[in-house]
Design a protein around this nucleic acid. Structure first.
Lengths: 190, 190
DNA sequence: AAAAAGTTGTGATTTGCATCACACAATTTC
DNA sequence: GAAATTGTGTGATGCAAATCACAACTTTTT
């Protein structure tokens, strides 16, 4: 799908922008393509951008001291991703973002976002709404992690994003659910 | 501490408002006092407000089908709390908020917040910044839950909020960490 | 001040999941 | 298309934490 059109429709769900306003906003973005397996952000990087997924699928993840991976987010077309802690505090990335498939992104720099938010009240409103819903989703996931068993959460995830079932290795789904791949596998026979 | 002053200082950390602007904003708030043990929000309620804690301590929590409690947040003076999912989507509360000690709150209705955000760009900016940092904190907690053992997370919590150690029952701290109170107790001798 | 309610200390038992280990299948790479 | 890498199925073993059970201590209520 056309990147501009995808973003436009996505923004329009929250705020009404005139064509001119949206064009001005869209001019802040640059397009980038990555191959499967490529890193978009590596731990320790200085972060300058947040990313809007146009096509493909990316993962946001953390690797601990024992090389164990934890997946924070799978981002599909229409999703945003970055290391927001690093982006907003100007610190170095503590997480990684990598491509699960070939991926096309729109990149928005922190500076351009803040300028756009300052210039257009509606755009600030859009980003506030987005952050609110990310926060709510994150709280919901935390609660589900504490409250529900692995099987339930696996089914919850696949129901929410059926594409994931075939698109990403089970290993990564286990790393999202916070269990070993063996445990995830054994859910089938239980 | 004076509620108005506390809120003013809190807002000033993020945005510069003139005294008149702040006064206008503050007029949207109402003050409420609660006794220890009282409920501010009960599951199933229609939610109209978010709350800024002036004094005391409150807990945001969920009770599952087996009557097990999960604490999502301890809110101390200077913190905000509500069921944001219910507040923004107009749905019924799925969580509870209750008072751990006698508590004084400032209440801001959803409507008043949205009006203030519309009227004053700076206020919208304040709420965006707030939501961003809540989102970052929530992600960080999720990651810590998956990555670190209970003992580490307990110490992390007490380091961040030393007041909690004496102010809230260990039972509730266990419910925050997602373990049984027995497990929390046994950390001392291990 | 007595009774009731809530909180914490401590043992015994069970269980879900991690870890280790290895074979086989699928997918990349050259 | 052969070799290398990555992913998946499956068993055996061990441990951390849940659950149950109950006594002791604290705080609240009347």
């Amino acid at each position: 799908m056309d990147p501009k059109q995808l973003l436009k429709e996505h923004v329009a769900k929250t705020v009404k922008l005139s064509d001119d306003e949206f064009d001005g906003f869209f001019d802040c973005f640059t397009t980038k393509s990555y191959k499967k397996g490529a890193y978009i952000i590596t731990e320790g990087d200085r972060i300058d951008c947040e990313y809007f997924v146009v096509s493909g699928c990316i993962k946001t993840f953390y690797i601990n001291d024992n090389q164990k991976m934890f997946v924070l987010q799978f981002a599909m077309p229409g999703c945003w991703a970055s290391d927001y802690s690093a982006l907003y505090n100007g610190t170095r990335a503590t997480i990684n973002i990598g491509c699960i498939t070939d991926t096309e992104l729109l990149c928005l720099s922190n500076k351009d976002r803040e300028n756009a938010c300052k210039k257009f009240h509606q755009i600030e409103h859009y980003f506030r709404a987005r952050m609110t819903s990310e926060y709510v989703a994150s709280q919901k996931r935390l609660l589900s992690t504490m409250n529900n068993d692995v099987k339930y959460r696996y089914e919850e995830l696949i129901t929410l994003f059926p594409e994931l079932f075939n698109m990403v290795p089970k290993r990564l789904i286990a790393a999202y659910l916070g269990v070993s791949r063996e445990t995830l596998y054994r859910l089938n026979n239980s």
